[in-house]
Design a protein around this nucleic acid. Structure first.
Ligand code: MN
Ligand code: MN
Ligand code: ZN
Ligand code: ZN
Lengths: 155, 155
DNA sequence: GTCGCGATTGAGAATCAGTCTCAACCGCCT
DNA sequence: AGGCGGTTGAGACTGATTCTCAATCGCGAC
């Protein structure tokens, strides 16, 4: 079903739907979450679909251009960058734990509204946005407060 | 003045304030906007401050870790990534024109509030965020609407 | 269904931003 | 002034991504 969107884009740009492109995008949709190129390559290989590295990169590039995929910074300093599927053009935002790397994807209308408002104030016509919130997840908060407790005792 | 913040961080981590580190950070503050490594290297070289590539990267890494700098995605597909100074720990968000690349930096309390709210809903303790809004600037909107006008006539 | 052409692919070479190595050097404390 | 790390520069190195090009494939035309 999102495959259709992909086929549509390919056709619009006079590109062909090949076996490899279909399999790559299918696998991306299955991943449902952030992923990196090696994971994608490996999972395809597991299924006997040994698609070349070059084709993987070429297809990811296409998907990025068509907005069916985006790169996401999953650390505040931008060290780590992963891919993130946006089926139906729905690009979600992320809440990322800076300690354990856990990522929660969300879609908040309020974020889009705020972006539209800010863009409007500058006369810009908004098309999309990307928001990452860096924070400590509940588990890591507990772990941290324990450690701090110990340090307290030492001091 | 923001140099002081840097010195403070260095001292706290038992690191030394060297000539090179001072010059690199000074230049970054002068840049005031997004920049890439080559630009920084080149501008330092112009001033006779030929600091090695390795030292530049090492210093950028430090600044990223201390939050005095961040990497910013300046295209919706994440193809382009630049550095962005955050003196005083004030990390601004960006409004980026997808056509001409113009970037407007802004600080909106409403964005921080919304992030805090969203994090809270998931039990996360927020520390920072990065928001980029992709849009068409006024000039590029005009250019686009002209082109569309022509296409209309054809259809 | 077959043909033909332009798009696509795979294997490996090439690129190139960023990292690492290590000997010389410097900042800082005594 | 002396000495102990931390820091630097030059260049080797790395690894992710891109490029090259001959072999293949998709798909519209016949
Ligand atoms: Mn989505
Ligand atoms: Mn700022
Ligand atoms: Zn966590
Ligand atoms: Zn513009």
């Amino acid at each position: 079903m999102s495959q259709q969107l992909f086929e549509q884009f390919l056709e619009q740009h006079c590109l062909k739907m090949t076996q490899q492109r279909r399999e790559i995008y299918e696998e991306i949709l299955k991943l449902e979450d952030h992923f990196d190129v090696d994971t994608l390559l490996w999972r395809l290989k597991q299924q006997g679909k040994a698609i070349s590295k070059a084709t993987i990169y070429r297809t990811l590039q296409l998907l990025l251009e068509y907005g069916l995929l985006k790169k996401t910074q999953v650390s505040p300093d931008g060290a780590e960058i992963l891919y993130d599927a946006c089926p139906e053009g729905c690009a979600s935002d992320n809440l990322v734990c800076t300690e354990c790397g856990k990522v929660i994807r969300f879609n908040k209308a309020a974020v889009c509204q705020l972006c539209t408002e800010i863009a409007g104030q500058h006369g810009f016509a908004p098309s999309s946005h990307c928001l990452n919130i860096f924070a400590l997840c509940p588990a890591c908060q507990q772990a941290t407060s324990k450690t701090q407790g110990e340090q307290h005792e030492k001091a």
